[in-house]
Design a binder for these strands. Structure first.
Lengths: 365, 365
DNA sequence: TTGTACGCGTTATCAA
DNA sequence: TTGATAACGCGTACAA
């Protein structure tokens, strides 16, 4: 007898004096085994410290009890949180989570998904609709159920769970217009290969257009999702002499950067400038001024995604499209625009000083 | 011939007119196969869209090319970021990342690790030294290499990669004492089953003690890692009439909460109160006032952890203990303490008002 | 350089 | 209710 470092099911069976199949059954379908035999087997399992061999199981059963989730980046707390709740839910169902991130690079994403497919994941969760055609082919060929999250696919070609980024963004613009803003600027994430960012910009544009307003291209800055980049972006807009009373940001991280830059330049939010975010991360409500933003039920998304995936893997049916309600949360960062002569037109070099409502310079061209 | 949805290596071999083993070899050790045969095989692979079957591979080779990482929570951006860099590094080496989180619950952690062991991960990354003995037993029995991160194990019983949380925290206290602070308070994460938090409190205590100062228990609040909890905690300290000029926070998230609460109460940081953090997340440097904190090379940690694990899996050797340099970053949230009559002693109910340096109330007992 | 044949640990089918 | 036995897809000594 070869000395093995671990016990396999055969060893358990022998120790319990039953056949391999009975041992297997006792673990998979305990009810089909007599209580007496079952407990002998369970004793043996405990005594030998038997741990099932996942690969062997996966090979024989053609199920890995593993789910893959691919996000653009974990640095956005919004993805990190949803991954977290996703993991909790599937773990309680005996599933394990394989994660990957691609940094908004669609080709990198194909590699990541390919690795997951190789591992035989039972399902894949993706973010958004923008993916390489190759990725879709890969998944289709492997016949692995997958789901789009953070966006909805109105065509219902794919299973999707999310909300309309366009409508949500439009409601932000709507809110600002109701406050009587007419001059807008926007700081967005890169829109190439990011349908969520693109839709948000489009949503704002559409809402404005419906009221005869426009959002010119030079007032929409596309930048990486970082506070530093957002600060710099607002700085560029101001330094360029752009005139706007409302700044719409693609997400809360960008909005936070804008708020910090505004504070550093002595621009009063919301009195001189209104700022909005998207996501409603924890800081949004705790920051001062508290951020007007779109609230997303992040934990719900992870949870529901898990639920849908588990039922599909189990052979159940779910509606192709699951729309999650999102809503605008009005807080302290938005207010009616200042009167003409109080507007922000260019940068104030005098960093820390708190400006009085009247102390605004004239813009250089 | 059964109609299969996918191609296996046998199919590739047949299509290329070679034996199964040759096909296998062509993929694993291309150099051992004649260029001509090799390319025939590669053609077949491409034509059939062959994707290796991970489970079968793992079963035969006894390696899953999968690494597990278990963190307390992904909500702390510091863990999310390191997981991200970890993933990048191991993915480029053909490995996949299995993640798990346990929410600071040691028993839950055992379950998570157990699931990873079942999946046959080739290595496991853990955070900190506090783990259930059962977890250590599990890993030892399965003979899976594992590594402690975010902390060092001076005893060198385990492989570890990190820094001394105690010394780092002590250096924060040292800095504050050099500024002539003598009255301290601390907001920490829960120290039960969290050695990092415990060590940080201990580090501050020791440093103070070395100068004859103390940090009484009632001035150390242990709370969940959230901004809201931190705000509430500072509120409680102030409302209780505690007198302190320096507030040491267990990490940056807590410190941010403290800064926000101080601002809301009209307490000037750093003039009336000095506040410090730990981690140096992006917001720490962008916030106003910028936060004095301990800088951790987060990306490096993920990267080095990956490197060490990969060499160990490959049979290589690495030093048991890898110490990462961390250092204090002094920013705008710390300054010498105010003169006696300017100290913060209790809460100011008049939220938004900015107090002049002299406008501080007398504490109620 | 290539091929044969067995083993990896489990599930699933079928018969007893 | 239990037990034989054939897959599952690939790696790898060993032989050719």
């Amino acid at each position: 007898m070869t000395r093995r470092p671990y016990a396999r099911l055969t060893d358990v069976a022998r120790a319990a004096g039953v056949s391999l199949s009975t041992a297997s059954r006792a673990l998979a379908e305990p009810d089909l085994v007599l209580p007496a035999t079952r407990s002998r087997i369970q004793d043996a399992v405990a005594r030998l410290g038997y741990v099932p061999h996942g690969a062997a199981r996966a090979l024989a059963s053609r199920r890995s009890r593993t789910i893959g989730a691919v996000v653009p980046t974990l640095e956005n707390p919004i993805f990190a949180t949803s991954i977290q709740t996703l993991h909790q839910r599937i773990a309680s169902a005996g599933y394990t989570l394989l994660v990957g991130s691609h940094g908004y690079d669609l080709d990198a994403e194909v590699q990541v998904v390919s690795a997951l497919v190789e591992r035989g994941v039972d399902g894949v969760l993706l973010v958004g609709l923008d993916h390489s055609p190759e990725l879709y082919r890969l998944l289709a060929k492997a016949a692995i159920p997958f789901e789009i999250t953070w966006a909805t696919d109105p065509s219902r070609i794919h299973y999707s769970l999310g909300f309309s980024n366009r409508l949500a963004a439009a409601s932000v613009a709507q809110h600002l217009m109701e406050l009587r803003h007419r001059e807008f600027a926007m700081i967005s994430g890169e829109t190439t290969s990011n349908d969520r960012a693109r839709e948000r910009v489009a949503g704002v544009r559409e809402a404005l257009a419906a009221h005869g307003l426009e959002l010119p291209a030079h007032r929409v800055l596309e930048i990486p999702f970082s506070i530093a980049a957002a600060r710099a972006a607002l700085g560029r807009l101001l330094d360029a002499g752009e005139r706007f009373t409302a700044l719409v940001c693609g997400n809360d991280v960008l909005a936070l950067g804008a708020l910090l830059e505004a504070a550093a330049r002595g621009i009063a939010v919301p009195h001189q400038l209104s700022v909005t975010g998207f996501d409603d991360i924890e800081l949004a409500s705790e920051f001062s001024p508290a951020l007007t933003t779109i609230h997303l039920p992040v934990a719900d998304i992870g949870h529901i995604a898990a639920e849908r995936m588990l039922t599909r893997i189990g052979g159940g049916e779910v509606p192709r499209l699951h729309e999650i309600p999102v809503h605008l949360v009005v807080r302290a960062s938005t207010a009616p625009p200042p009167r003409i002569n109080e507007r922000v037109r260019n940068s104030t070099k005098s960093g820390g000083r708190l400006p009085s409502r009247a102390a605004v310079r004239t813009g250089r061209r």
